[in-house]
Amino acid sequence: MTLKNIKHTSAAWIARSLAAFALAAFTLVGGTAHAADKFDFSPEQQGRLRTGKDAEAVNAIPPNFKFVKEGVLTVAVAPFAPPISTYATDAKTVVGFEADYALLIADALGLKLDLQPIAWADWPLGLSSGKYDAVISNVGVTEQRKEKFDFSSYRLGLHGFYVKADSPIKSIKEPKDIAGLKLTTGAGTNQERILLEWNRQNAAAGLKPATIQYYDDDVTRTLAVVTRRVDANFNPNAPQAYEAAKNGQIRLVGTVNAGWPLKSDVAIATRKGSGLAVALTTATNNLIRNGSYAKTLARWSLAEEALPRSETNPPGLPKFAP
């Protein structure tokens, strides 16, 4: 039987922990300060990589394809969190991995980039109506979405187990590794579904289930790890990778594909049947081969999410019965 314990945090504990966590972010760890400037959020983005025109990718663009603006790749992005996409210090320029990757794709196609910040909910209609050539905004591939859009994969969709930096836990990769641990995750999420299934498998194997605690946001989940209220936080990898690199308070001990036991890649979305997806897949694979892709992921501490190769319309999460 699945154990599902909901712990309610007190206002006093949250207030104390927030103060301690804020102070800890500026303390010395191991004799050296964790640099607050590890990530560049300036609008200038001096460290951003560029690449040359990719003749193979350009030749893969259908002759009849019409870009929204001639000579320009118009890409929609929904800035939501570093290091994937966020606003720069000028509060208007979009920066992060997806902005860098979109620029590399535009370079490869021999086009200028017009990166348009949007609300997440607006991308399907905007793409279908021809407002953008593509959407690069942490869109996961699903079989349902593939009915309306084409996809070119560019990042693994990963959930990560993060523990306190000095935790004795070395690795969490499979169900038996969570037996008896205290974990936090988001209620009603795909990652919760994974943990509950792992608990079910552990119970069937005679292992002690994990205790799952629920907190309202990423800040309090990270606080729960740092203050040892839980052993690990199991949630989307990218925001936690950013926090780990920024402050050094937590570290990664394992990843699980967001579509477990299947896979769920993150992909560029384009209009169904437009033909542009093949060119984008070609460009991505050549960026993987020339090293620009890996360097750009590393720039935003997302090396764990590298794909070995891009695919056009890869298998996505299946439709689940209501």
Rank of each mutant, 00 (worst) to 15 (best):
E143F: 00
R193Y: 02
V256H: 00
D166E: 08
T74F: 00
V226F: 14
D177W: 03
A33V: 03
R221S: 12
Y293C: 04
A108C: 10
G259S: 06
P322Y: 00
A33Q: 09
G254N: 07
T184F: 00
P315L: 01
K319T: 11
G31C: 12
A187C: 01
D100A: 12
I84D: 04
E192F: 04
W198V: 06
L280T: 07
A267K: 06
V29N: 08
P236V: 13
P261N: 05
L287V: 09
A119H: 11
L23Y: 09
R16M: 10
V95T: 03
T93S: 06
K173L: 08
Y87W: 08
A36K: 03
V58C: 13
E56N: 13
G110E: 01
E311M: 15
A12R: 08
N290W: 03
T32C: 09
A258S: 15
P318D: 04
L183H: 03
I84W: 13
P83L: 07
I61A: 13
A283Q: 04
L317K: 13
G96D: 05
E143A: 09
I118G: 01
I172E: 05
L276S: 05
G291W: 01
N237I: 01
T2V: 15
T142Q: 06
K182E: 02
T270G: 06
V95H: 01
K148I: 05
T211S: 15
L195R: 06
K7Q: 11
K170Y: 03
G71H: 07
R228C: 10
E147C: 05
R251L: 06
E197R: 15
V95G: 05
F41W: 03
N313P: 12
N247W: 15
P308I: 02
S137P: 09
G110V: 04
D217A: 11
L49C: 02
A205E: 13
F151H: 13
V141D: 01
N286H: 15
A165H: 12
K66C: 07
V141K: 01
T270F: 03
V29A: 10
K246W: 06
A91E: 12
F149R: 10
V94P: 11
I136T: 10
K146A: 14
A106S: 06
A25V: 00
D217F: 07
R271I: 01
D265F: 02
P79D: 05
R251P: 00
T185R: 01
N190E: 15
T296R: 00
F234W: 06
R48W: 00
A12G: 02
S42Y: 05
N59F: 07
T9A: 11
L196E: 12
E305S: 15
P117K: 12
R299L: 11
Q46K: 15
T74P: 05
I172M: 09
A241C: 11
L127Q: 13
L103H: 15
V72T: 15
I172H: 04
F151P: 01
V29T: 12
E70H: 08
G160K: 07
V29C: 00
S171E: 15
W198K: 04
L49R: 14
D107W: 10
E44A: 13
F67L: 07
K208S: 13
N235Y: 14
L113W: 10
L302S: 05
S128N: 14
D265G: 00
D218R: 08
D107L: 09
Q144L: 14
T312I: 09
T27Q: 10
Y101S: 01
E147N: 11
V141H: 02
Y154F: 14
A279R: 13
L196I: 07
A11Y: 06
